[in-house]
Design a protein around this nucleic acid. Structure first.
Lengths: 236, 236
DNA sequence: CTTCACTAAGTACGGCGTACGTAGTAGTCA
DNA sequence: TGACTACTACGTACGCCGTACTTAGTGAAG
């Protein structure tokens, strides 16, 4: 008998159904959907093999017939939500199209706040990720130039979107697992920061916080960030 | 007796030494250093309360006298390595100074590959993070304009650096915990990808992989990314 | 009909974070 | 000085986690 798992596998390369035995009770989509449901409702940390199995209604270890390691379950989840990317006929205006991509990605992460934490270049090979990449490249046809530059643009745009959304949502996901409210935690940190700044050791930081007294408009910050990335790749 | 942990705390706001009982056996720096040592040598997942305590030579639960939650241990770790940021007298050329900041941050993450995974805006209030931020702001004095824009520049630069370094190093850290080599895994994925691209469903991806046959020069990609971010904030 | 690859699921192990209780220590104050 | 008490140290225990291994049963292939 071959030693199990001794050789690396890409889960997408494994057939869903082998020829011989009884028909599997669940599809990969069933499993991904169950995991996504749990992550959406209770956060990523609630996605355990036991929970997903219970959500499906099967024994914990039965999951391992479909998914060799938990890592692969994550890969299924990312692919499943990648399917939500709407793909359209490119308009011919690459800036407009990529802006639309960025806003859609952000909306997707709003619906699935755990996605930024799982974002990894390793998952870039999943079927729906490939479709999404191909679509971005199609939107960039009017830009011209080498594909290398286009990949760099897509990577930076996705990276910036992911980073910004993560910064917004991480604290919210975190708050779920702590016994006090996000507002309380924020207040405590701001109070502490105020004390530090009053020490005079950080004059520019102190000046900055006086300048921008009001709450930050995160929406506007995000919009500016996207435009700046697009600017950085626009031909001069 | 007050219920333990019912109210949020910033670990930096807690005094290291209370007045009364016996002198604590370790300082916060001792603990952070022990955790950093483990993370550097065995990866972030090896940083458990038990391991850190063993590294210090004390009982597991004794750690909780210093660190109320594991999350706070992470905060100590990030602050500890933030101390490695070299701070210099700003040159007057904000672009040169920020470029230097970016390269230094990258070098720091090269020494501590687990840092990108812990990067969170929440940790931005730690003493050394504040120092670092103040230094970046000082470098940006020549740029002028509102502090809001400067923060956006610093955030985007750090975000891009973090994302790029993480993409480089995550796979390496991941490889450590898997029973096959990084090269093997890479080869398997590339083989799978080749098969997908041969299907003809992704014509632009296929063309791109023919165009850029050789290995990617990650160093050059990083340099271009940094320059692009700086460009995006340069006054026109 | 037999064979046997496959699915399903239970049990068990070694890890994790951490709540709780107990014992000991050292500053404080009567 | 002696009692008090806040504090440190740390062992035990609980309920999670991922997953290796085992057994039993199913159904298509020969």
């Amino acid at each position: 008998m071959a030693v199990r798992g001794a050789v690396p596998e890409v889960i997408w390369a494994r057939p869903e159904r082998a020829g011989r035995g009884p028909r599997p009770a669940y599809t990969r989509d069933d499993i991904a959907a169950a995991a996504v449901r749990i992550a959406d409702a209770q956060g990523l940390d609630a996605v355990s093999m036991r929970h997903v199995a219970a959500e499906l209604g099967c024994g914990t270890m039965s999951l391992y017939n479909y998914v060799p390691r938990k890592e692969d379950l994550y890969e299924l989840m990312v692919d499943a939500v990648s399917a939500e990317h709407e793909l359209w006929e490119p308009s011919g205006d690459w800036r407009a199209d990529l802006r639309r991509v960025a806003y859609q990605t952000r909306a997707l992460m709003g619906r699935h706040p755990w996605v930024p934490r799982l974002m990894s270049p390793v998952y870039g090979f999943s079927p729906h990720a490939l479709r999404f990449l191909e679509h971005c490249l199609a939107c960039l046809d009017p830009l011209g130039g080498p594909y290398g530059t286009k990949f760099e643009l897509i990577a930076m745009l996705n990276g910036v979107v992911t980073t910004y959304v993560r910064n917004e949502l991480d604290t919210a996901e975190r708050a779920r697992s702590l016994p006090w409210s996000e507002a309380d935690e924020h207040a405590v940190r701001i109070a502490y920061l105020g004390g530090r700044l009053a020490s005079g050791a950080y004059p520019r930081m102190a000046a900055a916080f006086q300048e921008d007294a009001g709450p930050i408009d995160l929406e506007a910050v995000f919009e500016r960030a996207v435009e700046r990335v697009l600017d950085a790749f626009a031909p001069r």
